[in-house]
Design a protein around this nucleic acid. Structure first.
Lengths: 342, 342
DNA sequence: TTGTAGGCGTTATCAT
DNA sequence: ATGATAACGCCTACAA
């Protein structure tokens, strides 16, 4: 049987129209669920669509509608699991829609960063973009999006933008909880390993630490802080500095898990047992946190939920207003925290 | 000044044509680098393009050319770092082209897997798709791609398809190297933790193990093998089984790093010191391998290079023939291997 | 070397 | 409730 007139290629709206004896526009109405449509007509067309296995051409739609259905994901590889979890959440939000997710890794240290992102937006003309930390903290990128008329949502450790353009976590507060947890376990001398200078996540976490230390009246002092940059090696070095001090802290909060793993190594090199002689708390709940020894207490962002919400803000303007912009992180207690040695 | 005639919206090919006093077609030729073009004309048009900031609309191009410039990445989250490294490699290959990378996570255990992938291909009509293990091992997916006329390249632990559709690693061989390395260090009783049944990577790694054990005349026997499924927990359980046997192996090869980390825990629970009393080798070189204690000897796929090559096979048919399909993995020696206790 | 006419598959406008 | 016609922005065929 003649499936389509021109036997080659995928069936088009014309094939459907001809075979169901209606006009293209009517088929288009069926596709787009126009309310003013005779039920009989609709069913007839839907049947032909099913028989033919017709699927609308997204490029043609994009051209006619003057907007496409691609969501861009811009990131500079914060950590692999975060990016993947985020992708999962976005996919969850756009499942069974015509949207697709286009990834765009960038290099935040490249001088061409803005040009790179501009080129991406101009070339692909995404429906909107989602921006992950740490590049999300760069206001110039948001400004570029606005100039190009590209909608965007940023993910970050604090409110960097209007709620419509943000999904944020409460880093400051949750780090406070982590410090409280350590204090309740008996620690009064707690060290901090900070994140890299210029990262909002780093300053938020440090602020949460400082506020909690002050609030709880814990030991304070510059010798209890060491600068890190979110890498394992920096955690190793910073941990060494903290652990070689006298008196040394009985607990350390590292601003991410990689650095916490570095601290763990530093402790082991010195024969300091965790958690007996040193308690340790990380941040991110990466795979490493659960799989090192001892399993590490850490903080987890609800990344999938944040991603889902971020995608909805972009895709579904009506639902967007209902979406929260603040998401609460959780402290995940594991075995790296114990009362300090007597 | 009048930037474009209809002041609204992005400039189109018509704007460029009008302002440079040539026809659309000529502009089109400039865009597409047609060789038969007067130099003067070309420069004039290029200047107008630059002034206007004109960027061709990819949707319109896609429609006219009857193919778009999206590359699909289909995966079932093997491990986060692998996916991200792969994305990086692909982006590297398509940098400064009009291609973009669309990610499509799938659930290999879902009964709707094939339907899901079909829907993706029919809806997005990608230029081609890249498929990561373990879903890449599913021949039905490749068959679906072929039926839908969608080009594809699979990544895997062995040759699953024609070279044009494959980038593969030499798992079997490199596991052999790993076992040789252990044997040269003095081990003769080596345990294996296998990957999940039905995974080609698992069978390849096991085959490499078996072949090496036979070739080197090492201890063999069912009690030296334990079934895992690539998770930390399965490594913990399988490691327990191996370590509770008498005599116990002096070294264990785990078919991935997560399981190796589990073995490390199992050893620690039993007071067995690594590497003094037990040597350990993993596979994948995930972040955890380098950051646990002791840093773990493991095997690394050249994922970025594989991804780059896979993308080129898809995108650049001329260069595709030059692309290798076999990529050699490396053994990364760290501190988890030492001579067996005397 | 360049231009004209027509088409890619869809949607919007304005009829009927 | 449905249809004819004209976009959308680009490319191919053919003509000049």
């Amino acid at each position: 049987m003649a499936r389509t007139s021109k036997s080659a290629g995928k069936p088009t709206i014309n094939d459907v129209a001809r075979l169901s004896g209606v006009s293209k526009k009517t088929v288009s109405r069926v596709i787009n669920r126009s309310p003013l449509l005779n039920q009989t007509t609709r069913q007839k067309v839907e049947q032909v669509i099913a028989e033919l296995g017709y699927v609308p051409n997204p490029q043609a739609r994009a051209l006619a509608l003057r907007r496409n259905f691609l969501i861009g994901l811009i990131h500079d590889n914060p950590n692999a699991q975060m990016v993947l979890n985020f992708q999962e959440g976005v996919l969850d939000a756009i499942r069974d829609t015509e949207f697709a997710l286009v990834v765009r890794p960038v290099d935040r240290k490249s001088p061409g960063l803005l040009a790179d992102i501009s080129a991406f937006i101009m070339k692909q003309r995404p429906y909107g973009v989602l921006i992950l930390p740490p590049v999300s903290e760069n206001d110039a990128i948001a400004e570029t999006c606005r100039e190009l008329g590209c909608n965007y949502v940023r993910m970050g450790s604090a409110r960097l933008d209007e709620p419509a353009h943000m999904v944020e976590s409460n880093d400051r507060q949750v780090v406070g909880h982590a410090i409280e947890h350590l204090a309740q376990t008996g620690h009064r001398r707690i060290g901090l390993i900070t994140g890299p200078v210029g990262f909002r996540s780093a300053t938020e976490r440090e602020a949460g630490f400082d506020e909690a230390v002050a609030r709880l009246g814990l030991d304070a002092g510059a010798e209890l802080k060491a600068q890190g940059n979110y890498t394992f090696e920096s955690g190793l070095a910073a941990g060494a500095r903290l652990l070689d001090a006298t008196p040394r802290p009985t607990a350390i909060f590292a601003s991410n898990d990689e650095m916490a793993a570095g601290v763990l190594h530093a402790a082991r090199e010195r024969g300091i047992r965790v958690p007996d002689q040193l308690s340790l708390v990380g941040f991110d709940d990466t795979a490493i946190a659960a799989h090192i020894w001892p399993p590490m207490t850490t903080v987890r962002w609800p990344i999938v939920a944040m991603a889902r919400s971020a995608a909805l803000k972009l895709v579904n303007p009506e639902a967007a207003a209902q979406q929260p912009s603040l998401f609460l992180s959780d402290l995940i207690p594991r075995a790296s925290v114990a009362p300090p040695a007597a």
